Amino acid sequence: MSSGAGQAPDAELSWTSALLKFLELVKYENLAAGISGGVVSTLALHPLDLVKIRFAVSDGLQMRPKYNGVVHCVRSIWKQEGIRGLYQGVTPNIWGAGLSWGLYFFFYNAIKAYKQNGHPEQLSATQHLISAAEAGAVTLCITNPIWVTKTRLVLQYDAGIDPSKKQYRGMLHALLKIYQNEGVRGLYKGFVPGLFGTSHGALQFMAYEELKKEYSFHKNVAVDAKLNPLEYVTMAALSKVFAVTATYPYQVVRARLQDQHTQYSGVMNAIGRTWRNEGVHGFYKGVIPNVLKVTPACCITFLVYENVSQFLLSFRQC
């Protein structure tokens, strides 16, 4: 009895000690830099994100606008609704992207520093992968409701020209209405494929870290040495294309689960119906506008992040 009773306080003390150690490694500069990168890239490229989602949910069975391609889609929305139509859902996208990138970099760097345990040696590719996946899972738990509202707002077809079709007036109204009508479950639609989607960020960060490590070794400089903008952009683009190619189908499934126009009973139902009705092609709908959007978005985000974080961290060292 005495040994069992003594283990609980020891375990609690160990957990508290680990938490305090983790908090000591937290750098809020990473949060600020990540938010900056996410907001800038979202403002620049939101229309392509809107186009990607509209293609992703186009299952051929619903009364939706028909688009022949990316350019036709952009022209159609511009002609019918103007610039306002191309920026439907931009508010939750800014909140979601800003918070997601900020929290991702925040947790990722803290987890990575915790695993290094105060030593400067580099982590392995597997350790980078696991650290990024853990950071992605925590971030998704916080931000999933924002992504649901963004999807719903983006899929308000013709809301700009016919107010009667405007189901949601804005981000806060959408959050409230989804909660009232569907409860917490509604705000976390697409969460399961979103968890699978953490593999996207994990693969991207692993590739980015490994490219930086190998390139720094090739140039014979420290891994954390500042690179020029072209070098950051090149490594960010290569890592993003690699991650998108490997994981895109989860984004289609997630968008369809969050869509207010079609009901699925769950992840497997969405996968099954997509496969039966559209085949493999269905899981890659919207991939072209997605690549056109996420590659430059990633480059902008990482470029802003690297420069802002190094600028802010320079004050910590003074």
Rank of each mutant, 00 (worst) to 15 (best):
residue 298 C to N: 15
residue 272 G to P: 00
residue 283 F to H: 03
residue 277 N to K: 13
residue 298 C to K: 07
residue 275 W to Y: 14
residue 291 V to D: 05
residue 279 G to H: 08
residue 313 L to V: 02
residue 289 P to Y: 08
residue 315 F to M: 09
residue 314 S to D: 10
residue 285 K to Y: 02
residue 258 Q to T: 00
residue 281 H to T: 11
residue 295 T to C: 11
residue 278 E to K: 14
residue 262 T to W: 01
residue 299 C to T: 00
residue 275 W to K: 10
residue 286 G to N: 12
residue 265 S to M: 09
residue 278 E to I: 09
residue 308 V to T: 04
residue 296 P to I: 05
residue 264 Y to V: 03
residue 298 C to R: 08
residue 295 T to V: 15
residue 264 Y to C: 06
residue 294 V to A: 14
residue 261 H to N: 11
residue 267 V to H: 07
residue 284 Y to C: 09
residue 304 V to D: 04
residue 266 G to T: 07
residue 274 T to Q: 09
residue 303 L to M: 13
residue 269 N to I: 08
residue 312 L to N: 02
residue 293 K to V: 01
residue 305 Y to N: 01
residue 281 H to F: 14
residue 268 M to C: 07
residue 304 V to N: 01
residue 270 A to Q: 04
residue 279 G to A: 01
residue 252 V to W: 03
residue 252 V to C: 11
residue 275 W to N: 09
residue 276 R to W: 08
residue 272 G to R: 15
residue 312 L to Y: 03
residue 303 L to S: 14
residue 311 F to K: 05
residue 278 E to L: 15
residue 268 M to S: 11
residue 301 T to H: 06
residue 275 W to R: 14
residue 271 I to T: 04
residue 311 F to M: 10
residue 286 G to W: 10
residue 278 E to N: 15
residue 273 R to T: 07
residue 270 A to V: 04
residue 254 R to C: 08
residue 274 T to G: 14
residue 283 F to A: 10
residue 314 S to C: 09
residue 259 D to N: 12
residue 258 Q to L: 01
residue 303 L to I: 08
